[in-house]
Simulated scan of single mutants.
Amino acid sequence: MAEWDVFEVLEPASQRIPLVFNSPHSGRYYPQSFLDQSRLDAHSIRRSEDHFVDELFQSATLIGAPLLRAHFPRAFLDVNREPYELDPRMFEGVLPPHANISSMRVAGGLGTVPRLVAENMEIYRSRVPVEEALARIESIYKPYHATLRKLIARTHVQFGMAVLIDCHSMPGNVHLAGSGQRPDFIIGDRYGTSAAAELSRFAVELLEELGYAVTRNKPYAGGFITEHYGRPTRGLHALQIEINRSLYVDEATLVKKPGFAALATDLATFVTGLARHVEDYGAYLPLAAE
């Protein structure tokens, strides 16, 4: 189905650290056929993107870790979902019996093939043929996850452990419930189940030392990818990192702010520090998380 390079792996000259980076929502290539199906203009449909997150973390390859990045947009297909979280109201035809039609994400319009972009804006003019949705899953979702699994497995074999960093962004107006605090970063570990607690705490501390306001698991604890790949008792750790977009992009124009380069430099420092910590203290990381 896909007629463009739907994703790519940016490889280091040699992998020197047991980290794997993933940017599943920064894709910004919108097929014309998809735009023709949408009721949204070319700017509004981009509201669900994790704008430029793949570029912010591109230094990971220089430090010695691979980076998997999507070119397809999240509005087209969301790989941070189960493979068949699908809303029957969206489609023309009958969904397969194994489809999960009742998850909270489906109810919110944010399934594997989303119904909405941010701010509850409907994507499609009319129902989508069910065959098209299933083709996206077969030709993009499954190969994407197969590639991510291979990167993690390769890292685990080489180093005896692997740490997945799932890279995302959040709207600038996100704040903690019951307070006016607007975090710059959120580290998610599925409430201690997807990574060793010490690793999560250290990630928070690194970012705080760089001068940022950081929270853990609130309001974002991690999605399907973090939950699915994090197996700390087996030496497989997964952290989700959310970056406040107001730090680096004008959310109205989607133009990078002058602080973009400084943030990318800070993230390179963060990656280096996290890698050093994992290498120095890797012996305890396979232990069960809190």
Rank of each mutant, 00 (worst) to 15 (best):
I63Q: 10
L110D: 00
L86H: 04
G109I: 04
T147R: 15
Y141W: 12
S48I: 08
P88Y: 00
D36L: 04
M90R: 10
P96R: 02
G93C: 09
Y29Q: 07
V53D: 04
T112M: 08
G93F: 01
V117K: 02
I137F: 09
V94N: 15
A70W: 04
L56W: 14
S38W: 03
L19C: 07
P129W: 13
G109P: 03
N100I: 05
V20I: 04
I140K: 00
E119P: 00
L56H: 14
V113H: 05
D41Q: 12
V94C: 12
Y141S: 03
S48C: 12
L134M: 06
S33D: 13
R127P: 13
L19K: 00
E55P: 08
V20M: 00
A42R: 15
Y141F: 12
S103K: 04
R89A: 14
A65M: 03
I45Q: 05
K142F: 06
R105I: 01
F34D: 02
R81D: 08
I101C: 12
A118G: 06
G108F: 02
A146W: 01
Y124L: 05
G93K: 04
T147F: 10
D50G: 10
T112H: 03
F91N: 10
S26N: 09
P73A: 07
S26F: 02
Q37P: 00
R69V: 05
F52G: 13
D54N: 14
V117Y: 01
H25E: 08
R125Q: 11
M104P: 03
P129C: 11
M90K: 12
H51L: 15
R149E: 13
P66N: 06
P143K: 03
I123N: 04
G108A: 08
V117T: 10
P31N: 09
D41L: 06
D36V: 00
A133S: 12
D41Y: 11
V130L: 05
S59N: 13
R136T: 07
S23E: 08
F34L: 01
F72P: 07
I140Q: 02
G64W: 02
E85Q: 14
I63C: 07
D50H: 13
S126Y: 10
A133E: 09
L134A: 02
P24F: 00
F76W: 12
N80S: 04
S26Y: 01
L40C: 07
V53G: 09
N80R: 06
I101P: 00
Y30T: 00
F72S: 03
L56S: 14
F52Y: 15
E119R: 10
H43T: 14
P24V: 02
R89F: 08
R89V: 08
I45F: 10
Y124R: 05
S59V: 06
M90F: 11
L77M: 12
R125E: 05
P114M: 09
D54L: 09
I101N: 08
N120K: 12
H51T: 15
R115C: 08
A146T: 11
N22D: 14
K142S: 07
Y30N: 05
I140R: 02
I123S: 05
P83W: 09
G93I: 03
E55R: 15
R105T: 03
G109Y: 01
S139Q: 07
D78E: 10
Q58T: 11
M121G: 06
M121Q: 15
L77I: 11
A65S: 15
S38C: 09
R74I: 02
F57K: 10
G111F: 06
H71V: 03
E92M: 12
L68P: 11
M104T: 10
E138I: 03
I140W: 04
